[in-house]
């Protein structure tokens, strides 16, 4: 090897060593989630809400897990919504009206901050019902 060739090889090695190449991680990234169960009794035409704080941004989903009267499942539809606490209520930005479900009725990406999930009877229950909302957030 000539001295010139040696210099070229050395320069190549030096440049590679100092490059700002970003290493792509190969390991999978997992995000921990937290589940909140919000249960209570909802009066006919009543409204209740539950406030929670996200410390990191991420996907939030909510579902009406159950509607019962005296321990017996009921098919009544209730409106659930997600929003931010405002005044004496929860100002919802998205909502869905339906019976209890196994799949999320609401899903959105949220930044860190304080939010609320709200349940309301907009169809007129014949009697008070117990409900459970399952909220999953980062």
């Amino acid at each position: 090897m000539t001295v010139g060739a040696f210099v070229i090889v050395a320069l190549t090695l030096v440049c590679n060593a100092c490059s700002d190449k970003i290493e792509t991680p190969t390991s999978a990234t997992t995000t921990a989630t937290t589940a909140i169960l919000f249960s209570g009794t909802l009066q006919p035409r009543g409204v209740r809400f539950y406030s929670y704080t996200l410390t990191t941004s991420g996907a939030v989903s909510a579902l009406l897990a159950s509607v019962e009267r005296n321990g017996v499942p009921a098919g009544n539809a209730l409106e659930i919504g997600i929003g931010a606490p405002a005044g004496t209520d929860c100002a919802v930005t998205m909502s869905a009206n339906g019976p209890a479900s196994l799949i999320p009725q609401l899903r959105h990406d949220a930044a860190a901050g304080t939010y609320c999930v709200r349940v309301a009877d907009i169809e007129g229950l014949a009697a008070p019902m117990t409900f459970t909302i399952r909220l999953i957030h980062p």
Partner: peptide, 25 residues
């Protein structure tokens, strides 16, 4: 002559090393 060429290469290598890593200063 070979000695002079080697010295020139060494100087070039040193300069390249300094320039190449300058962004990390």
């Amino acid at each position: 002559m070979i000695h002079r060429r080697f010295s020139f290469g060494a100087v070039l290598l040193a300069l390249a090393t300094g320039v190449g890593c300058n962004g990390d200063t």
